[in-house]
Amino acid sequence: MTVTETTATPGGTLARTAGPCGGAPGTWAVFRQILWRDVYVTLRSMPTFLAQVVLQPLFLVFVFGKVLTELGYARADYSDLLLPGVIALTCVLTGLQGTALPMVIDFSYTREIEDRLMAPLPTDAVALEKVVFGALRGLIAAVVMFPVGILVLGHIPFDAARLPLLVVVLILATIVGSAMGLALGALVRPDQINIVFALVLTPLLFTGCSQYPWPSLSVLPWFKVATLFNPLTYASEGMRAAMEPSVAHMNPVVAVVVLAACCAGFIGLGGWGFRRRALD
C-alpha cells in the first residue's frame, strides 16, 4: 500500500466536523430553491424557450387567423374566436410538454432529479414543484401570445370587465396542462413516450375546441360529446367567454369548475405516479 501513501494529500477541507449544516430548512424554503433551479436554467436559455413555446401558436394564428381570412376562406371575425382558443392551447400544451418530456428524461437518462429527491423535503413537494414550474412556463407563453396576436392580427378581442375570468382561466389552463404532463411523465415508460405523445398530443390539439366554438358543434352531435372529454375544451371555452363573449360559448362557470376538477384529478394521479417512480 506504499503507492496509496505516496499519493495521499492532507485532509484539508474534508477534515471538518461532520454534521448537517445550519438549521433545518423548512419544506417551503427547499421548495423555493428547487423552483429557483428550474427558473435559473430556463432564464439561461430564454431564446430557446421562447422559440419552443411561441412558434407553433404564432403559425396557427398567422395561417388560420390571417392567411385564411385574407384569402376569404374564413370569415373576417374567425380570428376573434380563434385567438382565445390558441391562447388556451398554448397554456395547456406548453405546460404538458414542458413537464412530461423532461421528467421522462430526468427519471431514466440523466437522473438529475435524484439530487432533488434526496433534498430534505417530501417527495410530493418535488412533484408539485414540477407542476408549478410547468404552469409558470405555460403562463409566460400565454402572455407572450397577446402581443403576438396584436402584431399578426392587428387587434385582439379584449374585455376589461372580464379580466378576472381571463386570469382564472389562464392559471387553471396552465396548471391542468402541467398536471397532465406530470401524470404522463411519471406514468409512461421511457421507451413508450414517443408513441404516447403521438397518441395523446394530436387528439388533444384538435378535439379541444381551440379552432371552433363548442356550441357550434351541434351540427356534429357525436363530436360535440367527444370534445367534452378533452380538458382543453373547457380552457378554450373559458378563454372565449373572457375575451370574446359575443361568440356563443360554454357557460364559464362550468368551464372553470371542470378545469379545477381536472387540475385536482391530474395532480393526484401524477403525484401517485411520481411517488411510484421516486420510491422503489
Binding site: 448537517p20 430553491q33 438529475e112 439530487d115
Partner: peptide
C-alpha cells in the same frame, strides 16, 4: 446523476441551497 444543465460549481451550490446553506 449530476445536473446536466448546470456547471460543476452550480451543481454544488444548488445542492447546498437545497439543504438550507
Amino acid at each position: 446523476n449530476l445536473d446536466q444543465a448546470l456547471s460543476a460549481r452550480r451543481n454544488l451550490l444548488f445542492h447546498a441551497a437545497y439543504f438550507g446553506m
